[in-house]
Design a binder for these strands. Sequence first.
DNA 1: ATGAAAGCGCTAACAC
DNA 2: GTGTTAGCGCTTTCAT
Lengths: 336, 336
Amino acid sequence: MESVNIKKLAQLLNLSIATVSKALRDSYDISKETKEKVVALAKELNYQPNPHASSLRKHKSKTIAVIIPEIANNYFTLAINGIETVAQEKGYHVLIYITHEDYQKEVSLAKDLYNGRVDGLLISVSGATTDYTHLQQLQQMGLPIVFFDRVCEEFDTLKVTTDDYESSYLATQHLIEQGCKKVAHLAISGNLSIGNKRKRGYLQALADHQMPVSESLIVECTNDDEIDGELIREMFIREKPDGIFAAVERYAMASYEVCGLLNLQIPRDVKVISFSNLRIAAFLNPSLSTITQPAFDIGKEAASRLLNTLEKKNAPLTNENIIFKSSLIQRTSTAK
Amino acid sequence: MESVNIKKLAQLLNLSIATVSKALRDSYDISKETKEKVVALAKELNYQPNPHASSLRKHKSKTIAVIIPEIANNYFTLAINGIETVAQEKGYHVLIYITHEDYQKEVSLAKDLYNGRVDGLLISVSGATTDYTHLQQLQQMGLPIVFFDRVCEEFDTLKVTTDDYESSYLATQHLIEQGCKKVAHLAISGNLSIGNKRKRGYLQALADHQMPVSESLIVECTNDDEIDGELIREMFIREKPDGIFAAVERYAMASYEVCGLLNLQIPRDVKVISFSNLRIAAFLNPSLSTITQPAFDIGKEAASRLLNTLEKKNAPLTNENIIFKSSLIQRTSTAK
DNA sequence: ATGAAAGCGCTAACAC
DNA sequence: GTGTTAGCGCTTTCAT
């Protein structure tokens, strides 16, 4: 990458490096003519300041990191889209890191951010994460962190989530209202707060409607599609549920598969509802009732807040919890 | 971001900065004992070298940029996954940029890479891009570029694609074999090479099978779902096709929608096949026959080649074209 | 085996 | 209004 630098501009214009630098930053104490000359030449030579030099000097990189557990998932895809939109608007760069639900990877990725590589971090933690010291260290070093979706409750910072408890309650209630007598839950593995909230919403709805509650109706899924399929199949055979509330889209698809294998018809024999951001849920066979999170907006909001803090336009990140509303969209999979 | 730097380590150890630096890089002319002391303290204090300083000094950032036209698309999501996997393995960082099919954005994003921000670029060009000077400039400045999927044929560098012409031919032929007499094509807008290849495959298959060929059977889609829906609807009414070959997933979904509106049954009245990387194509109603690209592997290959070049393990990027094979998966939407 | 010093390209305090 | 200079944290040549 051979390219023009500020020194070359200065030489060509017979000016000092400082003057050129100031002219480019539109400083008040540079004459209009000089500024114009400088800007003109910079444009002509396609001058771009060296980002490493200026990051080093200013202790600001105009870059944020996004750490997510997976990407083959519509929620995160949409969230990234929202994040990238805001970042581009404000002239920030976005580094992306995927943990594949691996705690060790999350730790080592966090280490990479220890020394000013980025100005801020947006993270949705891995399901395997129970210890947050890697993130706490980052925060102590002064790195602003915003959690989204998969948050760490105990962490003192901004968190952007959806109303997981409430929508899980409503989803479960919806199944009951549609006539289900035995509702199973396909739960997220690990002890993610999001997983707990969804499970609690489910349990509370069952309790409030005098429905059978049993641990054996809850399948703690993994990150492996095959294992999950097997666990779900076993539960179907063992419990013969007539309603399924899936905590994530992937488990709903696994249920569709299992129903196919067991010759169960949705929604006649089993009704299914799931958290999902699939745009084509309506085209599934049968079309899938979903709880849809405003993922794009969540990404936008998380990024906006972070960038505002970085630009000091706002107070530092408070221990606030911004909660977006999900929407329950009823489709054929829960029809009476 | 207050943190430990090499100077502090040197002070604490009563060594010179140079020695510490060398010890950390495991240089041959540092004694074992010194190395061990340095490494131990570095670990203890969680020392991480400042990436901007070393990038500035070494003219290497260990970072690559990925520019894609959109992300709410399974192909690109999978490709990023492949790219990120390779990058993480080799200790590289991945900056992500989305053009939203906007040429101006692509140009301005390219400008951001003019001055060493990244060591290499992976790009899938926007559909609106017809002029490649912004990329040529980057290449002239010495930035290695690898194209994937949406490539620029005339560009002298490595390109990773799929057998678009062949699979389009096969997809069209498949429709004909399934009994279609009038096959329409939902084509990608603009003059992307990928769009042309898919269209040429379609046209050749029609010609080889003595099928009606007409410009009015080809819908040049846009990037706007609503407009596309309208264009497709008009074509359906005007031409009454009994076969649809969609160049991208989004257009297939639009067709499903239009068929619903016009009370046409798939596959009885119209058969549909589409390029798609949707994992749940099998669960659509009806399940969608697809041409599926090995997107993850394409991302991996593109990234591997780029990183190998950066690490000088390979010769520089040649004007090669690596072609992956797509697979045609027959499902209900093209059943007889 | 260790250290001194220059310099990557830029910014900002301070002089003139 | 413009220039001089120091220094961000690191690597690397050259001396010792």
